[in-house]
C-alpha cells in the first residue's frame, strides 16, 4: 500500500477521466516518484496546458497552474526563471505540446531549462472528442480523419532530443514501476527532461479504431513495447508498430537558469 492521499486533493475525486483511461496510472507513478525523492510539497509547482491530461493539476496538492492550450511550457519557464528553487513539472498532451505548443516545446528543450515534462501521448485529441493529432499513426481513424490519418507522425522523444533536452525517456502505463523510475530520474536531472508516457484513450481513440477497452489497449502496449537496448539491434521494418521504451539520453549539460545566474553573480561581485 502506498499512501497517495497526502499528495492528493481528495475532495476533488473521483477523477474526471473515463473508465480505463491510462492517465490515472501516470498520475500515480508521478506521485510515487515525488515521494521517493522526498521532495516537499511546497517546493513543487505543477503546470499544465489544456486537454484531458492537463486536468491532472487540479488533483494534486502542490502549487498548481492550469494554463492555456499549448502554453504550459512558457508559464513554467517563467516560474522556473523567477523562482529556481521550485521543482517545476509540466503536464501536457500530444496535441498540447507538439501541435499548438510545438514551438514552445522545442525552445524549452533548446534552452535546456530545468523543467520536468510529463507528456501524455494517447495519439489523439481526447478532450475535444477524438480529432487527429500529430501523433495519430498513419491510417488510423479520427473524427477529423474519417478516411484515416494521412500524415507522418512526430517522434515526440526524438524531437526533444534533437532540440537539446538533456534527459529523454519513453515509458508506457502498462509498466507503472518503470514509469515511476523514469519520472524520478527526470526530476533529478538538472535540465530539460522529458518523459513521454504512452497512455491509452479508449473513449476518443480506441473505440473509433476498434482497439477495445482501456484494459485491451494496455495489453496491446505491453505486447508492442520493445526495450531501447533491444530496439537498437532491430531493423526499421521490425520496429514497425512497436513502442520503444527506455532512456534515450541522460547527459547533463549547461542549464538555462544556472547560466543566467552566472551573469547575475558577475554583477553582485562587482558591487
Amino acid at each position: 500500500m502506498f499512501n497517495y492521499d497526502q499528495y492528493l486533493r481528495i475532495t476533488k475525486f473521483p477523477l474526471i477521466w473515463c473508465p480505463g483511461c491510462g492517465d490515472g496510472i501516470v498520475l500515480k507513478s508521478l506521485v510515487r516518484a515525488i515521494d521517493k525523492l522526498g521532495i516537499e510539497k511546497d517546493s513543487v509547482c505543477m503546470v499544465s496546458g489544456i486537454g484531458c491530461a492537463s486536468r491532472l493539476t487540479g488533483y494534486v496538492d502542490f502549487n498548481t497552474l492550469h494554463t492555456t492550450h499549448g502554453r504550459a511550457m512558457t508559464f513554467a519557464t517563467g516560474v522556473k526563471m523567477a523562482k529556481p528553487d521550485l521543482h517545476v513539472i509540466v503536464i501536457t498532451g500530444d496535441g498540447d505540446a507538439t501541435a499548438i505548443g510545438g514551438n514552445h516545446y522545442i525552445h524549452a528543450a533548446r534552452r535546456n531549462i530545468d523543467l520536468t515534462v510529463i507528456l501524455f501521448n494517447n495519439h489523439i485529441y481526447g478532450m475535444t472528442g477524438g480529432q487527429v493529432s500529430p501523433t495519430t499513426p498513419k491510417g488510423m481513424l479520427a473524427s477529423t480523419a474519417p478516411y484515416g490519418s494521412m500524415d507522418h507522425t512526430f517522434n515526440i522523444s526524438g524531437l526533444a532530443q534533437a532540440a537539446g533536452a538533456s534527459f529523454v525517456a519513453r515509458a508506457s502505463v502498462h509498466n507503472g514501476v518503470q514509469l515511476e523510475n523514469y519520472i524520478a530520474k527526470a526530476i533529478q536531472n538538472k535540465g530539460f527532461s522529458l518523459v513521454e508516457a504512452m497512455s491509452p484513450c479508449p473513449t476518443a481513440y480506441g473505440r473509433r479504431n476498434r482497439l477495445g477497452a482501456g484494459v485491451d489497449m494496455i495489453e496491446e502496449l505491453k505486447r508492442d513495447a520493445v526495450p531501447y537496448s533491444k530496439a537498437k539491434k532491430m531493423t526499421p521494418e521490425e520496429l514497425e508498430g512497436k513502442v520503444v521504451t527506455g532512456i534515450f539520453i541522460n547527459e547533463e549539460h549547461p542549464e538555462c537558469r544556472s547560466e543566467y545566474q552566472k551573469i547575475i553573480d558577475r554583477f553582485q561581485k562587482e558591487k
Binding site: M1, P14, L15, W17, G22, D23, I25, K28, V173, H174
Partner: peptide
C-alpha cells in the same frame, strides 16, 4: 493491481 488502477480505487495492505 494497486499500481495500475487508474482511479485510486484499490488499496492492498500487506
Amino acid at each position: 493491481c494497486e499500481l495500475h488502477c487508474p482511479d485510486f480505487a484499490i488499496v492492498v495492505r500487506d
